[in-house]
Design a protein around this nucleic acid. Structure first.
Length: 365
DNA sequence: AATTCGGGGTT
DNA sequence: AACCCAGAATT
């Protein structure tokens, strides 16, 4: 069953897969209906993120921002807070930008045309296909990691799925399978099969509803597919962070810039310590230079290790005191421990926040 | 075409 | 530790 699959075989494949799907699909919150806005939000959350992780965020997000209008007009700070801990934060900023455009340019209705929908921020080839097929029953391929895994095995294809060209090959490969079926069900069925049966390691071929169509199973290559690019080891960075306190029981927090890592999130003032430099000196100099506060930095109070996809932070946390706390500006504020709850922090700095807040509370006894 | 962007769960 | 995840934007 190499590319150029006859109609009869495709029809049998669809029947076997869809029958399995109806009996085995998970009852997920974004499968209650085909509301385009809900489907869209779920697809953005699910990018590079597991279903189990997304579920609680999805519930909360839809309660807080039930309609495109609610999200479009929401305060960016609250939107970021709703995404706190989910990662890849540009997703939610792009989503709000895109939803604003839908409200302003399309009267609040998610566009049905691929060209229109694809032009929105954060909507790539996969998300466009997923939303248009699931919400509007458009026969559009929605090729994600699951789909490439399943079809690389079905057709025994060893192209590197990290290449952009490979995704296009799978899109044209999947296209004929979307004929004479419900695109919403078919696309979700392939992904569900990839998530539950045709898994990356030790795939459940014996339980697979389309095992008779699978070339990799015949060839014994299922475990070796798909072929993926090798990933580089994350790069280590030595960081120093400060919990700066003033005489009013407040602490200093800082908002990260518009772009780059953890953009727009709040954090404790921190700086990378170059190899061979003293942490305390580097930190004191930075606090004076960047925030205009003269502080006395004491011994380290905490160590935090945080792993990202492409780097590792080794953060040494220091406590610091000042009596010349500067005025708030747009990127930095003096807040009480209670007020930190209103701000979105990356998990790395949540670790600092939790431990230092706890320490503060116990010192009152 | 390669790199950047998070975080958590498996193996 | 390495791998993987309903990827997209940027370089």
């Amino acid at each position: 069953m190499q590319p150029n699959t006859d109609e009869q075989t495709i029809h049998e494949f669809q029947n076997s897969l869809l029958s399995w799907y109806e009996h085995n699909k998970r009852d997920l919150p974004w499968r209650q209906d085909q509301d385009p806005y809900k489907v869209w939000v779920s697809e953005i959350m699910l990018q590079q993120t597991k279903v189990d992780t997304v579920i609680p965020y999805f519930h909360h997000f839809m309660t807080q921002f039930p309609t495109p209008e609610d999200l479009a007009y929401a305060d960016e700070e609250q939107v970021m807070k709703a995404w706190e801990g989910l990662g890849y934060y540009s997703r939610v900023r792009n989503l709000q930008t895109a939803v604003k455009e839908v409200v302003e340019e399309y009267g609040g209705k998610v566009p049905e045309e691929r060209t229109s929908f694809s032009s929105l921020k954060g909507v790539g080839p996969y998300t466009a296909g997923a939303v248009l097929s699931i919400a509007y029953e458009k026969p559009e391929p929605a090729v994600d990691g699951n789909v490439m895994r399943v079809f690389s095995r079905i057709f025994n294809i060893s192209d590197d799925i990290g290449k952009a060209k490979t995704r296009k090959r799978f899109e044209s490969l999947v296209a004929p399978f979307l004929e004479d079926t419900e695109p919403s069900r078919f696309n979700q069925a392939v992904m569900e099969l990839g998530a539950l049966v045709c898994t990356p390691k030790s795939p459940g071929c014996l339980l697979c509803p389309v095992q008779e169509f699978c070339e990799a199973r015949k060839a014994g290559t299922a475990e070796d597919l798909p072929v993926k690019p090798k990933k580089k080891a994350p790069k280590a960075k030595d960081m120093a962070a400060a919990v700066v306190k003033n005489e009013y029981g407040q602490i200093l927090i800082h908002q990260r810039g518009e772009s780059g890592l953890l953009a727009r999130l709040w954090e404790f003032p921190n700086i990378e310590v170059p190899e061979g430099r003293e942490r305390i000196e580097t930190l004191e100099h930075y606090l004076a230079e960047e925030y205009g506060v003269n502080v006395q930095v004491k011994e380290p109070v905490q160590k935090v290790e945080h792993v990202f996809s492409h780097l590792i932070w080794y953060i040494t946390v220091f406590e610091a005191w000042t009596t010349d706390s500067t005025a708030d500006d747009t990127a930095s504020r003096w807040v009480s421990w209670e007020e930190t709850a209103e701000y979105a922090f990356p998990v790395s700095h949540q670790k600092i926040l939790e431990e230092q807040k706890e320490k503060e509370a116990s010192s009152w006894i």
